Each structure stands twice: as C-alpha cells, then as structure tokens.
Simulated assay, not measured.
Amino acid sequence: MRFRLSNIFIIFPFIFTIFIFVKFKNSSTNFDEKESQVISIPNECVCESKKTGKLYNFCYNLPENKQKRGKRFSCKFLDFWERFEESKSVDIKTDQIPNPVFVTAFSSGFISNAVRMISSIRKLGISMKIVIYDLGLTPDDNNILKQACNIEIRKFDFSIFPESMKELREYRWKPIVIAECLADFGSIWYLDTSVVLEKSNISHVYDLINCQKENIERLPLLPSFQRDIREKTEKHEDGWNKDIWLRNLKECRKSSYLLHGYSGHGILSVTNPEVYNWIPSNFEELRKEKAKMYDAGFVYAVNTKTIMLDIMKWYVLCALENSCMGPENSSLICSFENDDRFKKYAECHRYDQSIINLLLANANFYDRRYYVSEIVDFFHIKRNGNLNVNNEEMQCI
C-alpha cells in the first residue's frame, strides 16, 4: 500500500496526543514524588539539597513515637552529610561484611598512648590497616608513627567545620571520623588511644552480627518489665559468658554499632537536659538500670543503612550543632546524689558519649544488651600507667 501525504494529517493529531500524555505523565510522576516527600516530612523539618533537589528530614524522631521529634538541625550541614547518606551500605543478610580496619584519632599529648595501643595490635600478629586521624600532631609525632606498618595518616580538616569542633575535649570530631571511615571501608573498629587489645581472635564478637545471615527462628523479645528483672538478677559482663553469648546468638538482635566497656552509670544521669531538645527520649525507660552508658571510645560498627540513617546521621548532625553535643555550661564533673547513678541528672555531661548512648538506647528498647557486645575478654582500658613501649613493637609480625 502506498503512503499518501494526506495520511499525515490523520495520524499527526493521534501522535501528538500520545506525546503530550507521556510528557504529562512523567512530569506528574516527578511532581508526585516530590509532593509525597513534602507530605511525609513536616515543613519545619525539611532541608532541600542544592545538588539533587532531594528533600531530607533534619528533625530526629523518637523511634517508638514518630510524633515526638526534636528541633531541626541546620540545613547548612546538608551538603556535608549527603555523602555519608549516599555511601554504599552493607546488607548483612546478603553481603559479605568487609574486613574491618582499625581507626583512631588523637593530638600530640597522646602519642605515647597511641604507640602502646598500636603495639598491642601488632604484637598479637594482627596486620590490618590502622587509620590515624591527626588532630594536632608534631613532625616528631609523625616520624614516630611512620615507623608502624600498614598505617594511613589523615589530617583532620578543622577549617570546614564550626569553630566548636576545635574544642577537642568536646569530642565533636569523633562522629565525623567514624562516619567517614564507615563510608570508606564499610566496617571498622574505632579505638581511643587508651584501648589495649589483648586477643587476636575476636570472631565471637563478629558472630553477634553475622547471626543475621542465618534463617533462624529468633527468641521473642522479652517485655520491658522482664528485661528489668533480668538486668537486676543477672551478673554483669565479666570476660566471656558463653551462656549469655549463646542466648544473644539465638535472639540475634544486636545493633551493628556495638559498644563494649561499661562506664559505671546510666545515660540520663550524665546527659545535659538541653540535648533532649534535639534528641527526645522516653525518660521512664531511660531512668532504668538497663539503660547503662558505655564508653564511646571502643566501637565495632558496620555501615548498614539502619546504622547510617538512624544512628550516624544524628550523631554527626549533633556534633555540628553547638548546643546539641556540647550545651553551654556543660561539665565533666558529676555529683551523684545519694550515689544514684541512674534516676537523677548528676549535673554533668559526657559529650559524644552521651549522644551515641542516647541514640543507641532509643533505637534498642532502652536496653544496653542490644547495643553492647557483653564480651570483655579481648581488651582493657588503660588511661595512664607505664607507657614505656618500644617503637619497634609497632611493626607487623
């Protein structure tokens, strides 16, 4: 059949109609997506990316009650945060968890402690990379550290952060260091220089996370009052209690951000109340003994989507917000009334440690058993004492 020019006038309106429909449908889809984002994020919490136009919720919502939310963190921090949110996450059920690297950060006054910490790792025959963040090291310090094997020294760039970041004793740099290394490596051990490693085989810690790979029928989560009783009646962690470890494997509810060393008090007693303006909580649960605080300076963490979005996001944003991580007039000196270490505020604040424990407790039933390893047979904390170590001990065996 021969094509006639007159057919164009018959076909054209039909083609044009289809074109307009498809174009409108695509535009409508994009509009609907953006509109749905606005609907799901309260107006007072929205931050919009200058790069992508994506909308972000910058108000922390209490996991058990999404209507309870904190003040919006500043949108000026969005560009910095975005790279972490877009980092490649690990799906523990399907992915192989990357081999962790060791990460630490310190200034010149802690060089002897750092040498001891590095030596404790190398003397065990562990050759994994150690990433060191320079918070103010001298050329001599760097010459000492360069004698160690398999290390990477990164200069912490204070110039891109608020001035408060330079107050090293507020530890605002720590969430930044941890977030960067989780994004870069997928799995890390963060260690303050006071940590001394004692055991090379720490697979029993990894098992607490790796159990999620198995299709097991988990033990049910006990109600809060039964976990209160458990906390009061069971012995606190001491070494490696294999009965508790086996139960934890069967429950398989451990966070992929694990703390290890108990600090000797609860979270509420050493957290400045101003923090709750940004990160609300359930005070009834937070006063209980199972909401214990653990050292923020020794961590095993995996970059899962849950950890990055539900924990690290708020840990980082709080560090960047002056009145969140270090509210005005915060003090490290505590006054525990009648030696009550849980129920009453002791007029002190633990900066990064208060924040990460609060976030982990909120996300894990206010029960330390779900955000700590409960295993303490592979390290000890030594903040002072004999620092007479040989630099050659930092070499790989």
Rank of each mutant, 00 (worst) to 15 (best):
residue 93 K to E: 12
residue 164 S to I: 04
residue 142 N to A: 05
residue 371 Y to H: 08
residue 265 H to G: 11
residue 164 S to R: 14
residue 314 W to C: 09
residue 84 F to V: 04
residue 223 P to W: 08
residue 25 K to Y: 15
residue 308 M to E: 05
residue 286 L to P: 08
residue 49 S to T: 05
residue 353 Q to F: 03
residue 111 I to D: 07
residue 21 F to T: 13
residue 364 N to Q: 09
residue 15 I to P: 08
residue 318 C to A: 07
residue 179 A to W: 01
residue 173 W to T: 15
residue 174 K to S: 10
residue 273 P to W: 01
residue 201 N to F: 00
residue 335 S to M: 08
residue 359 L to I: 05
residue 309 L to H: 12
residue 269 S to E: 04
residue 4 R to N: 14
residue 263 S to A: 13
residue 126 I to R: 11
residue 97 I to P: 04
residue 176 I to D: 01
residue 197 L to F: 04
residue 238 D to E: 12
residue 95 D to H: 05
residue 62 L to K: 13
residue 176 I to Q: 13
residue 351 Y to N: 13
residue 354 S to N: 02
residue 114 A to V: 02
residue 28 S to Y: 10
residue 39 I to K: 13
residue 219 L to R: 08
residue 193 T to E: 07
residue 13 P to L: 02
residue 335 S to H: 15
residue 186 G to A: 01
residue 18 I to V: 15
residue 84 F to G: 05
residue 107 S to A: 14
residue 151 I to R: 08
residue 301 A to V: 07
residue 245 W to E: 11
residue 47 C to Y: 03
residue 34 K to F: 13
residue 183 A to K: 07
residue 94 T to D: 07
residue 37 Q to P: 02
residue 383 R to K: 14
residue 389 V to F: 14
residue 390 N to Y: 01
residue 152 E to S: 15
residue 199 K to H: 07
residue 153 I to F: 09
residue 368 R to G: 11
residue 195 V to D: 00
residue 132 I to H: 02
residue 162 P to F: 03
residue 352 D to V: 00
residue 100 P to I: 02
residue 255 S to V: 05
residue 173 W to H: 12
residue 321 E to S: 15
residue 4 R to G: 10
residue 299 V to R: 01
residue 364 N to G: 08
residue 96 Q to H: 14
residue 140 D to V: 06
residue 277 N to E: 02
residue 251 E to I: 12
residue 101 V to H: 00
residue 284 E to Y: 13
residue 37 Q to L: 06
residue 74 S to V: 01
residue 84 F to R: 10
residue 353 Q to E: 08
residue 275 V to I: 10
residue 390 N to E: 07
residue 114 A to F: 06
residue 60 Y to N: 13
residue 211 C to R: 00
residue 217 E to L: 09
residue 389 V to H: 11
residue 158 F to Q: 04
residue 384 N to E: 10
residue 71 K to H: 04
residue 342 F to K: 10
residue 101 V to G: 00
residue 362 N to W: 06
residue 252 C to T: 04
residue 316 V to D: 03
residue 233 T to N: 11
residue 323 S to Q: 15
residue 60 Y to G: 10
residue 279 I to V: 11
residue 292 K to P: 03
residue 394 M to E: 02
residue 45 C to D: 02
residue 182 L to S: 08
residue 64 E to W: 01
residue 335 S to C: 09
residue 308 M to V: 06
residue 106 F to L: 11
residue 171 Y to F: 15
residue 296 A to L: 01
residue 364 N to W: 05
residue 177 V to F: 05
residue 327 P to R: 05
